[in-house]
């Protein structure tokens, strides 16, 4: 690359309105995230219509802030990247149409990005990738093991058959009457408690890298219910610790086994649940003697942000991917199919 390249990216797949600028694929220039979490707290979860309403109120303000922070203008950008899916359709639509509008107004190339590709590429803002690599993607909507043999190629070798890990966290948190979002509260309580209850671990068939958390979730809810009927005191800290122990045991064991089988050079943790201290600790222990290097991004890159979309978008852009003016929100976008899409402009 002779000249510096700048990508402006937009992410609105759930409840964060985010805009970022990344330079030369890996250098973070600015990363603005307008969170709506306070607004959704009163409903105990994200309400899609309300999320969409916040996005349209925040979109141009967030764009302006990103430019103000970076001291740059749209004219300095080489391309506009945006999350096209998966996510909440109404929320995605705001980002997709905003990105198309900037690209059209300023006649810039447009690049649609898969949200999970973004989560994985968040790590590249910290450290260069070495292939093959394996990514453990854990968030409110996803639990996947993704194998990457080269840039832009994604093979899902394992995924959840029911609930995502983050979903199980939220449901258990609700049963323990913890405020929304529950994940961080369980993580905090788990560190104050002890694993006193033996909860099941879903290993599934031999050699499977798939996950299942709905049985565990039900086991926790049943145990709490039984304790209540018997008038037995269960410490919330211990329930949290026991639940978390089961989740991180399965995640870290399967991640290590897959890393060995595929002989990967790097093991990347991605998604909102990567912020979980219990998971970080378990993975660090498991990978202590592994040849694969364990990479966990800093907190601000784990949760939804646009820097990760810019990082993935920059690679897609340099590989020749372009989106047309008919780019749409794609709430069920498939990662493998996204990776296998043809390069070039579709329109």
């Amino acid at each position: 690359m002779n000249e510096d390249q700048y990508i402006l990216a937009i992410e609105t797949s759930c409840d964060e309105t985010a805009v970022a600028v990344v330079k030369n694929e890996t250098e973070l220039i600015t990363n603005v995230v307008a969170s709506q979490i306070e607004s959704h707290k009163r409903f105990g979860g994200v309400v899609p219509e309300i999320a969409s309403r916040h996005h349209i109120e925040q979109m141009t303000l967030t764009l302006q802030q990103a430019l103000d922070d970076s001291g740059m203008t749209i004219d300095d950008m080489d391309a506009i990247a945006v999350t096209e899916g998966p996510g909440l359709v109404g929320a995605l639509l705001v980002g997709v149409n905003a990105a198309k509008s900037i690209a059209f107004a300023k006649q810039k190339p447009l690049v649609g990005v898969h949200h999970i590709a973004g989560h994985i590429y968040a790590n590249r803002l910290e450290k260069e990738f070495q292939f093959p690599l394996l990514a453990l993607v854990v968030s409110g909507g996803h639990t996947e093991l993704v194998l990457m043999r080269e840039h832009g190629s994604f093979e899902i070798i394992g995924e959840t058959r029911d609930d995502a890990a983050g979903e199980a966290y939220d449901k258990v948190a609700r049963t323990l009457k913890l405020p929304y979002p529950g994940g961080p509260h369980i993580d905090r309580l788990a560190h104050e408690g002890e694993e006193t209850i033996e909860f099941p671990r879903a290993w599934l068939e031999d050699g499977s890298y798939d996950f299942s958390f709905s049985g565990l979730k039900s086991a926790v809810i049943n145990r709490l219910h039984k304790a209540k009927q018997r008038g037995e005191e269960l410490k919330a800290e211990d329930v949290a610790a026991s639940f978390q122990a089961s989740v991180v045991d399965v995640l870290s064991t399967k991640a290590l086994r897959a890393a060995e089988e595929y002989g990967v050079k790097q093991m990347i943790v991605a998604g909102g649940v990567a912020a979980n201290k219990g998971l970080r600790k378990a993975l660090e222990e498991k990978f202590q003697n592994s040849k694969a290097e364990l990479l966990i991004p800093p907190l601000h890159l784990c949760t939804d942000n646009a820097a990760m979309i810019a990082a993935a978008g920059a690679v897609a852009f340099n590989q020749g991917h372009r989106s047309g003016w008919d780019l749409n929100a794609n709430p069920g976008l498939d990662l493998e199919r996204y990776g296998a899409r043809k390069t070039g402009s579709p329109s």
């Binding site: 109404g90 905003a98 509008s101 900037i102």
Partner: peptide, 19 residues
Amino acid sequence: SYTGVRIGLTTAKTMAWSL
């Protein structure tokens, strides 16, 4: 339509902002 309104308004606002 809530969604329809947002598509038009996002486009109009962001295009105007860009220009």
